[in-house]
Nucleic acid binder design. Structure first.
Length: 431
RNA sequence: UCCGCGGUAGCUCAAUGGUGGAGCAUCCGGCUGUUAACCGGAGGGUUGUAGGUUCGAAUCCUACCCGCGGAGCCA
């Protein structure tokens, strides 16, 4: 008898197969009994009628508790009544482990209760779907860059100092060298990589010790950061929109059942095609003023400001040329207007906010050094970074995409805590 | 750090000054096509903690603890 997974049942109609999994739920109508087997690839209902299986097998049903592990053998039957399209007429069952009373019932639960049991919560259909979409997004990210000649250059997680000098970092003792900090961005290292390999990306976890308490923040999150030598801001925006289109269309193509489980309105995702609207910060401020928002030129866009701007478009919008004062020291100023930086943020639709932040980098040694001094950053820490402007400096650009915010947007979630298996937040370090 | 909301059965909630309830989960019984199955029955409580007001507090007051959401910061 062949050992199969639920997702492959369509290839075994009429055959006797064996499945291994966990009890998702069971129902009984006396002499006919139904059990839902979950194996990680899907859920299938096994049907047992008294008399059709050995009495000993029929009675095993009573011992099975929710999430008990067991194997089921039976004949695969196509059945339009089944949500997955197939059912199993059970011929045999073997219990592997009888689960203790399972805390997550098929009814509603609060976020704290579920978060405390995140290791079990992952077994439920919704979380399963989110993890599958997340994985597809990450695969799309890697495929996109790999297919376009980028080289993966991983940046260090332990770093000697702040990359941007603004965020609060996690600090840890580091032998005789004092303190190390968990990275908040791999960008500076990616720039070094781009000068060596042309087109690179780094992809890893990043850490922010800020006490943010919102639906868009985690203290540990994943970020992918491409960096390309000889790309200017426009090239950077071209890359960003092609990238996002590729991710969204890949998920739409390969994860339709999961999006359905999540009850995601996919028509909103189908719009995500090039070209994306590009508005300058000045134009974004105009949009805000037209909506009656008292926004002062020079400020950064807040969460609600971003939502208002993005509501004007049916796909991600790229806002470029922000006031230099609110942006990082390494961003190049616009030659046409020294007050603004050649920066771009990509705002996701439906109020999901900033999912990409990027810029053309300052490639002039003297200007970069002046910025470092202006922001009172320690020169020594950036000496290696300045080397990139001493030895064959070139125009270059890149951006960072926040994986969790992207997953949250594509899945239509209301909080990023569900986008990663074990979220780390200000008041949560477990499980 | 600031602002707002909340904490009652294992879970989700009701009870707003007068005998703490319901649904689900658990246990027992019934049902040959159930889809968060359904029907009948049972057990299950120091109402977050400490103090105060009152004849009487889940309910009103004070402090603290914990959580949630938002702001700032950012992806």
């Amino acid at each position: 008898m062949s050992k199969v997974y639920v997702e492959d049942l369509s290839k075994h109609v009429g055959q006797e197969v064996r499945l291994h999994g966990w009890l998702y739920n069971k129902r009984s109508s006396g002499k006919i009994r139904f059990l839902l087997l979950r194996d990680g690839t899907g859920v299938v209902q096994g049907v047992m009628a008294k008399g059709a299986v050995a009495d000993a097998t029929f009675e095993l049903f009573d011992q099975l508790t929710q999430e008990s592990s067991f194997s089921l053998s039976g004949k695969v039957r196509k059945d339009d009544r089944a949500p997955g399209g197939f059912e199993l007429d059970v011929t045999g069952m073997e219990i592997i482990h009888v689960a203790k009373e399972y805390p997550i019932t098929p009814k509603e639960h609060g976020v704290e209760f579920l978060a405390d049991r995140r290791h079990l919560w992952l077994r439920s259909a919704r979380q399963h779907a989110i993890m599958r979409v997340r994985h597809r997004i990450i695969k799309a990210i890697r495929d996109f860059f790999d297919d376009r000649g980028f080289t993966l250059v991983d940046s260090p997680i332990l770093t000697p100092a702040a990359c941007e000098g603004t965020s609060t970092l996690f600090e840890t003792p580091y032998f005789d060298l004092g303190s190390a900090f968990l990275t908040q961005s791999g960008q500076l290292y990616a720039e070094a990589g781009a000068m060596a390999l042309g087109k690179v990306y780094c992809f890893g976890p990043t850490f922010r010790a800020e006490k943010s308490k919102t639906r868009r923040h985690l203290t540990e999150f994943w970020m992918v950061e491409p960096e390309v030598a000889f790309n200017d801001l426009n090239d950077n925006m071209d890359l960003a929109e092609e990238f996002l289109e590729y991710i969204v269309q890949s998920v739409l193509r390969d994860r339709a059942p999961e999006l359905k489980t999540l009850e995601r309105d996919v028509t909103k995702l189908q719009n995500v095609k090039r070209p994306f609207p590009r508005v300058s910060y000045d134009e974004a401020v105009e949009i805000l003023h037209k909506r009656g928002i008292a926004f002062e030129w020079g400020n950064d866009l807040g969460g609600t400001d971003e939502t208002v701007v993005s509501e004007n478009f049916d796909r991600p919008v790229m806002v470029h040329r922000y006031p230099a004062a609110v942006k990082a020291f390494y961003m190049k100023r616009d030659p046409a207007n020294a007050k603004v930086a050649l920066a771009v943020d990509v705002l996701a639709p439906e109020g999901y906010g900033e999912i990409i932040g990027g810029s053309q980098r300052e490639d002039d040694y003297d200007l970069l050094l002046a910025r470092i001094d202006e922001q009172k950053l320690p020169r020594e820490a950036f000496d290696w970074y300045l080397d990139l402007r001493r030895f064959g400096s070139v125009p270059h650009s890149g951006f960072g995409l926040g994986v969790e915010r992207t997953v949250s947007w594509i899945c239509g979630l209301d909080h990023v805590r569900e986008t990663i298996a074990f979220p780390r937040m200000i008041y949560r370090l477990t499980p």
